[in-house]
């Protein structure tokens, strides 16, 4: 059981370290999907918007973590 618990923890920990960053990534991807579906933004802008949002989320997260240490 200990090994299985460790395996499950490892699998979970592979993707989620800071829950707020993981949730923010999922929300941002969802927002881009909605934006694409709605046709509100030109299709060729979705990629740059996706990247800029992800970069911003990462930057905000590490700066917040550094501030709260």
């Amino acid at each position: 059981m200990t090994f299985l618990n460790a395996l499950v923890a490892e699998l979970f920990g592979m993707f989620i370290d800071d829950g707020s960053l993981a949730i923010a990534i999922l929300v941002w991807v969802g927002a881009i999907a909605a934006l694409q579906a709605s046709g509100l933004a030109p299709l060729e802008m979705s990629g740059p918007i996706l990247f800029l949002g992800l970069g911003g989320l990462l930057l905000e997260n590490v700066l917040r973590r550094a501030r709260n240490r």
């Binding site: 592979m14 800071d18 990534i25």
Partner: peptide, 10 residues
């Protein structure tokens, strides 16, 4: 994205 950004963050 979840995996890579976690590594990058760390």
């Amino acid at each position: 994205l979840l995996f890579g950004m976690r590594w990058l963050r760390k």
